[in-house]
Design a protein around this nucleic acid. Structure first.
Lengths: 182, 182
DNA sequence: GGGTACATGTAATCAGTTACATGATTTA
DNA sequence: TAAATCATGTAACTGATTACATGTACCC
């Protein structure tokens, strides 16, 4: 899947180095779909071999490799984006997983867990709001920009998470366990 | 991480076979954190070697392996659940990823994508509501059950997703592209 | 000259998935 | 007796992560 992220990034940014794409990803789609730096080098090499990307490497100095989409790469990206998926992603959130198994611990531990998650989601929400502010100088264009709309999904998710974990702190589920302190 | 899921499942279900744990997971935590059947066999073998699980295999017939928590396994689970994480999960949702790169395709394709996602999330929402109904025969106990509370997070996420993709269908972001039909 | 940011890669390892493979028990 | 379900496992592969390793260019 990461190969399509790389393809998409090249489409989005135009000719760019792997380093550059990774830096852009870290401030945008990386919040939703992150990958290690080494992978973008592996993937870009692979995509060049497959003929989906072109590379143009400087002969001296930093020997930058400028990546660009080939026609075949552009069409592979279009096909993939236009192929709807009927799958819903798993949330795979460690905090929720821990909460699921909360009957193994005391209510205090659940509260501590929830406090950490709350803070983490609040921080993430702030990140998103900061990024959103850079979009929304031009409100009309923003509404029309799919990347802004994906950010909107992130904002809603974080709002929801902040509310959710706040409620856990207020009334931690004790799971039928007996509170050992009483 | 899956090893903690297995440990947690054994804690939650009590002594059970790997097969049984997987079946239970498929109707509960599997919606949030799925794994292939083969993995539960690999993990359970590993956890037995680590002394976190005990196994008791039937000598004849189906040769079922009953898995149970050792003291050391129970304490490893408690430690893990009680160790708060400051990380926020990536959403890693293919539909959102496709939407992020929607500038590569036409508005029609975005609408088609959104329709599929909407249907998928509606179906998932129905699954969750069906499961919630089985909890909520006893409303007071449900409020106190961490697994029910995690399901609540899932319900909210799916509600949010249904609203989100509905809005995309109403006004698909066109990403500054020119609509080729005009 | 030193620190920071730019820039690229490889190697080893690990986690997870898919496919292959087999047999027992229950129910219609 | 056939089909469905119960039940367990291995092997090959793939994708992703971590750690290692190197050098350039710019700015103070």
């Amino acid at each position: 899947m990461t190969s399509y992220v790389v393809l998409g990034l090249v489409h989005h940014r135009g000719p760019a180095t792997a380093y550059d794409l990774k830096a852009f990803a870290d401030g945008s789609i990386g919040y939703f779909w992150d990958f290690p730096r080494s992978q973008i080098y592996a993937e870009s090499t692979r995509l060049v071999e497959l003929g989906l990307l072109d590379e143009d490497q400087e002969t001296g100095g930093r020997r930058r490799r400028m990546l660009s989409l080939t026609d075949s790469g552009a069409s592979a990206l279009r096909d993939w984006v236009a192929t709807p998926s009927d799958a819903v992603a798993e949330i795979r959130d460690r905090g929720l997983l821990q909460l699921f198994f909360a009957s193994a611990v005391d209510a205090d531990d659940v509260v501590t867990l929830a406090e950490h998650q709350l803070r983490a989601h609040e921080r993430r929400l702030e990140d998103y709001e900061r990024i959103a502010a850079t979009f929304d100088n031009d409100v009309d264009a923003a509404r029309d920009d799919p990347t802004r709309v994906v950010l909107e999904a992130g904002l809603r998710y974080e709002h929801m998470s902040v509310e959710f974990w706040s409620a856990i702190i207020r009334t931690p589920p004790t799971g039928g366990r007996r509170d050992p302190s009483r």
